[in-house]
Amino acid sequence: MEWLISFSIGVLTATGVYLTLRARTFPVVMGLTLLAYAVNIFLFSMGRLTIGLPAVIDKYAEEAVQYSDPLPQALVLTAIVIAFGMTAFLIVLALKARGELGNDHVDGVEDSPSSSVQQEAK
């Protein structure tokens, strides 16, 4: 299971970084979302990977029992909520920028190569 989790975090992060470096606002939003997913899985795995263990300690168990660490789960919940809110805000802001600047480039100005491609397409 370890390699699967670490592989997913790696792929999500790499894809997220690639998309965040794109010049259009929508890929940037997608990239940030993927980065948020990556960090959520990372946070979750920081409580160590366990299967079928409760997240609470049984106070009255006869011997010491194993449990999964509940704190990272709480952290992930907080992080998910925050990332969700931030993504929603960013999408609205990207739409506002699209409306005010007339295009969806992150700098608000079209690059010369891409605009020439668009002109050819027209």
């Binding site: 980065l35 960090v39 920081m46 952290l75 931030m86 805000f89 990207a94 920028a97």
Partner: peptide, 22 residues
């Protein structure tokens, strides 16, 4: 837009760092 994006990346890195420390 630039400000929001760079700070969101900063927040992600913050979580990675905090997670690793935890």
């Amino acid at each position: 837009l630039h400000y929001v994006v760079i700070n969101l990346i900063g927040s992600t890195l913050f979580l990675f760092a905090v997670g690793a420390l935890y």
